[in-house]
Amino acid sequence: MFQTTIDHVGVEERAAKLGQRSIKAATKVQGIKLALSMIDLTTLEGKDSAGKVRAMCQKAKHPLPGNSEVPHVAAVCVYPNMITVAKQALAGTDINIAAVATGFPSGQYPLDIKLNDVRSAVNLGADEIDMVIDRGAFLSGHLSKVADEIALVKEACGAAHLKVILETAELETYDNIRKASWLSMEAGADFIKTSTGKLSQAATLPITLVMLEAIRDYWYETGKVIGMKPAGGIRTSKDAMKYLVLVKETLGDVWLTPHYFRFGASTLTNDLLMQLTKEMTGMYQSVDYFTVD
């Protein structure tokens, strides 16, 4: 296994430099459409209701009503209770249903409950499972406990894809993030994901770069293509374009698809739509012209 440390000054400089790429004209339009197609449209709140989820699914199918050039999003991401509602609303589409499980967001539950959580979500029709790692175990050095748990969850997923949430804000250092990324990939993750979105600190460019580089090194060693999902805190088109630049220049074209790269976001969609409309019509529209779902 190839391992290395991360120099935080260096990685932050590199991420900032990549963030300076100038994205204009056709590149911008194409990038925005690409970003839209990569969104895991998310609602993860205690107050989520069937009505709210149905409205979000409608948005997922037709982000910009009346414009067929705008792609639908990759998936909707909901709590297990909402899987059935989402499944009905998305019937007949290509849009996946991602469900958070394993005692999201803390993960502080007994293992059998976590595994049941996963099995039940898959039975209800989830195509993708977003699990959380046991950060307490990771930080206290019980790495094999974390890895074993991921492997068991992967088994419980069956055919469903597994995204492993590291909750990077709690891991704090880039070295930890790299270590946790590697461990997750070895234990069976299909995707690695930055955050639950429940903490104020979520995805950042340098954190994403560290994870993309881990994905690249894992691919160098094994040939397995692992996906990446930054989640939380990505709200503007400009930000989204920076993430795409990171993917393009770190991993290349193979990863520039919803199969291997996702944005976990709720408010990003409307800014992408607003910027896209501006590129198409030459002028900005009022926010009131974009539906809040």
């Binding site: 590149t27 040939g223 290349g252 193979v254």
Partner: peptide, 15 residues
């Protein structure tokens, strides 16, 4: 022997 593909799937327009 496994090369990353840095192509023009999404290329930068001149700026």
């Amino acid at each position: 022997s496994r090369r990353l593909l840095f192509g023009d799937l999404w290329d930068y327009a001149p700026s």
